[in-house]
Write a protein that binds this DNA or RNA. Structure first.
Length: 946
DNA sequence: GAGTTTGAAACT
DNA sequence: CAGTTTCAAACTC
């Protein structure tokens, strides 16, 4: 079911309602699809399909990966649907199209004028890319989270792209479009109009002419201002001419656009137009329309969305191929364009945005987007929830770590934004993203952005807007984007299973291109004897299906063997609930001390390995060391991103002669000792650090994947000492040692986080509780929505938000429970995942509180710490918790578990174990609903066992 | 590309 | 729980 079937299913669904794109449509199928594709995305480059349906098989990464995977899927699904709709629309020579085409022309003209000013330079996707990225970010975030939730926005973007694709009679046109950047917008428009036949070149020329003709009199300088007005006018005209239902658009906006797209009034309109797009068959036309009518920003958003969609699109093609009721269209789009097309399409979409968008607007829009995005997550559930981590527990963590490390809390946000933008740009031009390169690029982009005053303003706005939430969303966005690109690559490359088949369908060439483009970095497994059914296999461990990039032999980690995979996963999880949990736990604790001062989060122990390494000869200086190891996301995805875990060794490590560059075990002790000294005192610096840390964490996957800590906890602390961070946190568990918490924390507690925990258990609990509440509220809302309108209604939202999140939320809401022990653990992990975004607002509040109370950490910690706290035996070393201690797939199931056995919650382990095993199936809401009980039962069983 | 080294994962 | 084996990645040549 997970991968293949779902993908297929979506097709019909999409096909059925060609015109209507109601988010609901995405529902089950879309969810499945999203899940499937997302998996791929997660691994990104490789497009490794995750184990969708597998309830137990945590989707690969219960935490982040799943989300990422899902996102792409959702996007794909949506896209497929959209495509269908587009096809229909495009195919239909409706009056709307005509009118639209006309409008587009006008639009184009206007845009060009604007572009000439702003974008002329911008045209190169790069410049626009930033904005686009920003805009896109939201979308991406949606996509990312959307794993479950199908972001309307994303859909819209997808729709646009698809529509464009549809409009393009020939894949070649798309390519040409890509090549002819300037012509992109026009091309897109034309495509939308169905003028693709003429060819890109003609488009380029025509639009220009049009500009001259229509706006010849207008100065370029006027472009921006007038453009806006013109845009509006045009939009209104278009609407009228098209007979499009503005209302629909508005309503739709309510879904997706409001959340993300709502930027400015104009942008809103744009968003609406987009939404209207999705709904209306003439989506394509709408897209252009939006571009023209709405602010460039909106366009960029759309573009970014489309772009991301495209990126996802790679997977999309798969999904589309699988799902698309009309293989022709799919084939046309996918095969002709495949990955490349996706990128191209992105380029197109981006180009539109780029051209149209002006920095200022961008800035504004971005800020708004950031804001909107946050709400959207709630509203839409889609992106915000993104649960960055969803992408990948470890990987994400590593990624996030990297980001924050570089620039720290707020900075990380900026990076996220910037990176988003840069990524978008690059991705536009370059579909394939190379993990490290991408990151670097992102960072570079970030720098660039920072340099630009406008960008700065944006950044500031973003940061201010939702603070951590925004940053998170952004971060997630970035990661998502990266993943997206990677995923697309992977999708392209991946041909395994149905999903893979889909890719294959697209076109080997495309795949190859993508692979080649993106991917050298994206390594995948090379298993020969394990059949990719053991943790030896990175893919399997990551919860991803093996794909083309893999050179494994006798691989069973494929959609075709889903049942086998699931069973195996279950077995492994039964042995070690944390087996699939992220290995790296966030550094919450450590960051503050050394790294902060230095500004290096990475440095010493920003993140910790769950179990800790056991190096004896490598001195923790080689990749053999899991702490030092460069986590290429461990997953294929990671490989692409190639994020360095940069995890310092900690007490948990049993390494000998540790020389870990990122933090020696000895150093860790020292730091701990220092911390201990100051533990009792929460200096302002610590508080600030905490704040920063929170922000960073928000961005960091760890939060998303608090599981690790919990897991560690759960591990029983076999290595109590082993798991540096976790143990630290765990120790504090009030229950276990309320009074001695600090003591219990022991050395590790030294970490600021630990300190915080120590400082006030109450605070922690309270904070965590609050978080829970907040999250719960949001979750509840989401959950309600989900439940009420499972997939269909809020496909995007429900589906994605870290796919599992909705479930979790629902579970949480159910559980709601409370009291800390159980609730906390679950809530924490769950919250984070699901609400990295949603929570933001709450988080911000909490941060503020923390400021005053220093409880922020609590929240953060709560996620894991609570888990840990709950864990009866904090000291148990990580190993104990998870012998393997590898990736603990966190959370998804945690909620369920929590729900199932609140009473058992106390025993962190039980909880953890339950949670771990019960990874929510990749499939979104549906699964969650249906499986929730199962997972619960499982958890409960585990708990009973415990 | 083949072989070696390494340490995690799995097994006993 | 400890020890051993298996495994695949990382590394070296």
């Amino acid at each position: 079911m997970d991968s293949p079937e779902p993908t297929k299913s979506p097709i019909p669904s999409s096909a059925a309602p060609s015109s209507s794109f109601s988010p609901v449509q995405e529902s089950p199928f879309s969810n499945f699809v999203s899940n499937l594709s997302p998996i791929k995305h997660d691994k990104v480059p490789h497009v490794a399909p995750r184990f969708l349906g597998l309830s137990s098989p945590p989707l690969v990464f219960t935490s982040p990966r799943i989300n990422t995977l899902k996102r792409p899927q959702s996007s794909n699904v949506e896209v497929s649907q959209n495509v269908k709709g587009d096809e229909q629309s495009t195919n239909r020579p409706g009056d709307l199209e005509r009118s639209v085409s006309e409008l587009h022309r006008e639009m184009i003209v206007d845009i060009k004028e604007d572009d000439t000013k702003d974008s002329m330079s911008v045209q190169p996707s790069s410049s626009s890319g930033c904005v686009d990225e920003y805009l896109a970010d939201p979308v991406e975030a949606d996509c990312v989270d959307s794993a479950y939730s199908v972001n309307l926005n994303f859909k819209q973007s997808n729709n646009v792209l698809e529509s464009s694709a549809n409009g393009l009679p020939c894949s070649k046109n798309l390519e040409s479009v890509d090549k002819h950047y300037s012509g992109r917008e026009t091309d897109a428009v034309q495509l939308l109009l169905g003028q693709s036949e003429k060819g890109l070149e003609t488009f380029d020329i025509e639009p220009l002419k049009i500009k001259e003709d229509q706006h010849g009199g207008q100065g370029i300088s006027d472009g921006c201002r007038q453009i806006d007005s013109d845009m509006f006018d045009l939009s209104s005209q278009e609407k009228e001419s098209k007979n499009l239902n503005p209302q629909k658009g508005v309503e739709d906006d309510g879904y997706g656009c409001d959340g993300f797209l709502q930027l400015q009034p104009g942008s809103l309109q744009m968003a609406q137009a987009y939404e209207g797009f999705a709904e209306n068959v003439g989506v394509v036309t709408d897209a252009p329309f939006n571009d023209t009518t709405h602010d460039l920003e909106a366009i960029e958003h759309l573009r970014g969305m489309s772009r991301r969609c495209l990126q996802f699109g790679e997977p999309q093609p798969e999904s589309t191929a699988n799902c698309s009721g009309s293989p022709n269209l799919v084939d046309d789009v996918t095969t002709s364009v495949p990955l490349a097309t996706s990128s191209k399409t992105e380029g197109l979409g981006s180009s539109h945005v780029d051209l149209s968008t002006s920095r200022k607007r961008r800035l504004v829009n971005l800020s708004q987007l950031a804001i909107n995005m946050i709400p959207q997550s709630y509203d839409n559930r889609s992106s915000l929830t993104v649960s960055k981590p969803s992408g990948i527990g470890l990987h994400l963590n590593s990624i996030f770590n990297a980001i924050p490390t570089d620039q720290g809390g707020t900075v990380s946000i900026k990076l996220a934004v910037d990176s988003m933008g840069t990524e978008g740009i690059k991705s536009a031009s370059i579909t394939s993203c190379q993990s490290m390169e991408n990151m670097e690029n992102c960072s570079d982009a970030f720098e660039k952005v920072s340099t630009a005053p406008q960008d700065r303003t944006l950044e500031a706005k973003v940061s201010t807007i939702e603070g951590s939430a925004a940053s998170e969303s952004l971060c997630t966005m970035e990661s998502i984007e990266c993943h997206m690109t990677i995923n697309t690559k992977r999708k392209l490359s991946s041909g395994d299973g149905d999903i893979n088949e889909v890719f294959n369908q697209q076109s080997p060439k495309n795949k190859r291109k993508k692979l080649s483009d993106s991917d050298e970095g994206c390594k995948r497994c090379n298993c020969k004897k394990s059949k990719c059914l053991k943790l030896y296999c990175d893919c399997f461990a990551a919860g991803i299906y093996c794909a083309e990039p893999c050179s494994c032999q006798g691989c069973f980690n494929r959609p075709e063997y889903e049942s086998t995979v699931l069973e195996t996963r279950q077995q492994i999880e039964s042995r070690n609930p944390l087996a699939f949990a992220p290995k790296i736990v966030q550094p919450v604790t450590e960051v503050p001390v050394n790294s902060r001062e230095d500004g290096n989060w990475k440095t010493p122990s920003s993140a910790r390995h769950k179990r800790g390494c056991n190096c004896k000869r490598s001195m923790c200086l080689k990749k053999y060391c899991e702490c030092y190891q460069v986590w290429n996301l461990q997953l294929p995805e990671s490989s692409c991103h190639a994020f360095h875990a940069n995890v310092g060794c900690s007490i948990g490590c049993r390494c000998e002669g540790c020389k870990n560059v990122y933090g020696k075990k000895e150093d860790y002790y020292v730091t701990e000792a220092i911390v201990k000294r100051g533990v009792g005192e929460l200096s302002e610096s610590t508080v600030a650090a905490k704040k920063d840390f929170l922000h960073s964490e928000l961005c960091n996957p760890h939060y998303l994947t608090p599981t690790t800590p919990s897991f560690e906890h759960s591990d029983h602390g076999k290595n109590a000492s082993v798991s540096g961070l976790l143990p630290m946190r765990c120790l504090p568990s009030p229950e276990s040692d309320p009074t001695n918490v600090s003591l219990a924390k022991s050395p590790r507690t030294s970490n600021t986080n630990d300190i915080l925990l120590e400082t006030s258990k109450e605070n922690l609990y309270v904070g965590s509780y609050r978080d829970k509440i907040n999250y719960n509220n949001a979750d509840n809302i989401l959950a309600d929505d989900c439940h009420q309108t499972p997939l269909p209604n809020h496909p995007s939202i429900i589906i994605d938000s870290s796919s599992s999140k909705p479930r979790e939320l629902t579970n949480l809401s159910r559980l709601n429970l409370g009291p800390r022990s159980g609730c906390f653990t679950l809530g924490g992990s769950l919250r984070w995942r699901r609400s990295p975004i949603t929570p933001k607002s709450p988080i911000d509040k909490e941060l503020q509180q923390l400021d005053s109370d220093g409880g922020l950490y609590d929240i953060l910690e709560d996620d894991t710490p609570e888990m840990l706290k709950d864990t009866s035996t904090p000291l148990k070393s990580v190993k104990a918790s998870s012998p393997n201690g590898k990736r603990v797939s966190p959370p998804h199931k945690l909620h369920q578990l929590g729900s199932s056995s609140l009473g058992s919650l106390r025993s962190g382990r039980k909880f953890m174990l339950k949670a771990v095993p019960s990874f929510p199936p990749l499939t979104p809401c549906i699964v969650s609903k249906g499986n929730s009980n199962e997972s619960r039962s499982n958890y409960e069983e585990d708990g009973s066992k415990d």
